[in-house]
Amino acid sequence: MARVELGQQLGMSPASVSDLTASLVDEGILVTEDSGEAGSGLLRGRPKVRLFFADTLGCVIGVWTGFNRIELRLVDSAGRNRASRRIERPLRSLEAGELMDVLAETITAFARDTGHPDVKAVGLACQGYVDTRDGVVAWSPVLGVRDLPLASGLNQRLGLPVSIENDASAMAFAIAQRDPELRSGRTACLMVGDGVGLGFLIQGELYRGARFGGSEFGHVRLRRSGPQCRCGGRGCIEAYLADYALYRDAQLIDHRPAPTVLLPGEDAMTDIVAQARSGDAALANLFREAGEVLGDAVGILIQTLEPDHVVICGPGTRAMDLLRPSFEAALETQTIPELRALAAIQVVESSMDLLTEGVVMQALRELDFDLARLKAA
């Protein structure tokens, strides 16, 4: 942004902003670029000069571990995406040491192959219960080990700062960075896709529980005798809404081939959605029932957390047109009207790219804090 905009947001005088930004430009932390837009006011002015972070301060790598797959993204210090990669690799059968070896080798090879060896930090998003303070994955449906000291294990192998995050919290953080309104008040981001997760933000910062984790909202039980969930329980929200649950039920309806792995791919889910839209009554009913569960889930959120904003996000939004009628009907009947009126509900169509974006943005912010501490010292 331009200096005048920066001063307005921070409540600082133009002289103070100019002095500080000039110092940062001299140090190579910021760079300037002519925006080509005339200055504001009645008189014609010089084009605004915008400030950006330099792209020469190093890179960070964002990683997401899914079911037998790894997604990686390399971003420079200006926030520009430089490279990405997806790797299919069995993970659930690996022991703790072997798993961390595989992840470290994958990250190292990715950094080398991109030609950007100056990596400053790594951020990793993982499904399941993640203790962000101690860097431990206490439980994950996509990994076969519990209480995995992932951050310290990767730090020892890579020699880099490593932070870990629950994947729904990472997506919530990325979405909030794109929309200033979601960084005010309380925002609940319900992610639907491979599983069902919740990222909850208060004034733009992720909520942390007693073990500095997020929320395992997808494993809240709706019905004791409901379908099997990956967590080992039955009747969880996820067991009705996640991709694997919808595909499992679609198999029973029309005897479609089972996926080669537990979780169906995007193509398989797109086919089910297309068939439902084209008039397949049984599959349309499958999404109608899923919409009811989604309405129940959002109603629980509203009545327990009283958020200002509710965001429905994740790959599962691909079928929102099929879910919406029953979702809205269930929400209307299951939620106290006065509380429902307080929450602004929106759907953000999103892909799994937001998971790596979220941990990348957190890693970049930590680098900014490091620069600030260095200057203060």
Rank of each mutant, 00 (worst) to 15 (best):
G195T: 03
I237G: 04
R183M: 09
G265L: 04
F212S: 14
Q275H: 11
V17D: 03
A319T: 02
G265F: 10
S225A: 13
L103H: 10
L143D: 03
T32L: 14
L301F: 05
I345E: 09
C313T: 14
L252G: 07
L371V: 00
E357H: 13
G41E: 03
N166A: 06
G185C: 03
T65Y: 13
I107P: 02
G204A: 05
A109L: 08
E238Q: 10
V298K: 15
R92M: 08
A290E: 05
A188K: 09
D353T: 02
D101R: 14
H116V: 04
G204K: 07
S93I: 09
E98P: 10
Y207A: 13
L103W: 06
C229H: 03
A174N: 09
A109F: 00
R112H: 11
G209M: 04
E332L: 15
W64P: 00
A281L: 15
D179P: 01
V130A: 10
L323Y: 12
V49E: 06
L364D: 05
T56M: 05
V130K: 13
T333N: 06
L241K: 08
G115H: 13
Q203I: 00
C313M: 11
A125H: 13
G358K: 11
A125Q: 11
L294V: 03
P227W: 02
R69G: 02
L283T: 04
T317A: 05
S40Q: 12
A282C: 10
I336T: 07
V122E: 01
N166T: 04
S152L: 05
S93C: 05
V122H: 11
D308M: 05
Q9V: 08
V102K: 06
A121Y: 04
G295D: 07
I237W: 07
F200I: 11
I87F: 01
D34Q: 11
E88C: 02
A268C: 06
F53D: 00
D131Q: 15
F67G: 07
E338M: 12
L57C: 02
V136Q: 12
A250H: 05
L364M: 10
R183D: 00
I70R: 14
R82A: 11
H309A: 01
V137S: 04
C126G: 09
L222A: 06
M12P: 00
A258G: 10
E165S: 14
A83F: 08
P14H: 05
V31F: 06
R82P: 04
A329Y: 03
A250W: 06
L158E: 04
G185M: 07
R146P: 00
K48I: 00
R69V: 01
S184C: 00
E238C: 08
L246K: 06
N166E: 09
S152A: 14
L206E: 07
T21M: 10
A54I: 01
E95N: 04
